[in-house]
Design a protein around this nucleic acid. Structure first.
Lengths: 152, 152
DNA sequence: TAAGATTGATTATTCAATCTTC
DNA sequence: GAAGATTGAATAATCAATCTTA
């Protein structure tokens, strides 16, 4: 969703951040959709692909989705036989999700091209500029996350 | 939605961009929700607030929503008596949306605080850093938007 | 009582198809 | 035929309430 029409010059940063995010997210999403997956489904699978079996709650926090949402996403992945649920022996409230062989192999298939596509989308900056942008965005994000929430 | 677990160092930029965006969007959204509006509704009103009467199609393109979505958003704003539709005399296919007096006055009420909250969220960078970030993000976004779409 | 997960209801959003006007 | 807007169906996501176990 977008954005402030920059009356205030400092808000320009928010506008341009939102636009850059949207443009890159568009590439991520359009690539993922080609494989019949939604962004949230892919994000969940990616966690499992890189971290191995993970509790639903942990995936939820990582991909910034609601509590009901993670159940729904995992349900769909289970239906597609890409993921299975597994009981957690040490805490019977918790449930692990883990990739099936099919899920693993799907990620093997699509992840490299996905990564390449993102790198192409990010290619507007050279390595030095990327490093500078990372430093600035990290600082920006860290501060924003720390600012108290006023409304809640 | 989030994100790549950075196997590739260059993808770090995407991760950190997504996180910063999410953190700031959270502030925008939580502020707006307090006033009973969704992000899309606010975005549409903001266009009208700053540009005056605007066709639905133009709002749609500006706030990056689907064609059906803009009809839905404007419908809700009309129900809340914040916006009215108005026929376009020169092109009878088109419809303008414009703020009602109530809509205008609501924006007068909430916009300054909204702006202030965003500025606080963006306060992790000083003016010079913000300017540098704007330049980098503009370049990044412009390139990403120009990269062809592969999938479509 | 709190944490993890699920459910049911509701809302937001897209998509494809359609209608009207250009 | 194409552009602007709307509709209806389908999907994605949230939220509040609930159940179970810690």
């Amino acid at each position: 969703m977008a954005r402030l029409e920059s009356s205030n010059p400092a808000l320009k940063l928010w506008v341009v951040l939102a636009r850059a995010h949207a443009a890159i997210a568009h590439h991520a999403e359009s690539d993922i959709n080609r494989h019949g997956l939604g962004l949230a489904e892919f994000a969940a699978m990616e966690v499992l692909y890189h971290k191995g079996p993970t509790t639903l709650g942990e995936i939820q926090r990582k991909i910034l989705i609601s509590s009901g949402g993670i159940t729904y996403v995992i349900d769909r992945l289970v239906q597609k036989a890409l993921v299975v649920r597994e009981a957690c022996p040490s805490d019977r409230r918790a449930t692990y999700a883990k990739l099936t062989a099919a899920g693993e192999s799907l990620m093997d298939d699509i992840f490299p091209a996905h990564e390449a596509r993102l790198l192409r989308a990010l290619g507007g900056l050279d390595a030095a500029e990327q490093a500078a942008a990372v430093a600035l965005l990290r600082q920006l994000g860290k501060h924003a996350a720390a600012v108290p929430d006023d409304g809640e």
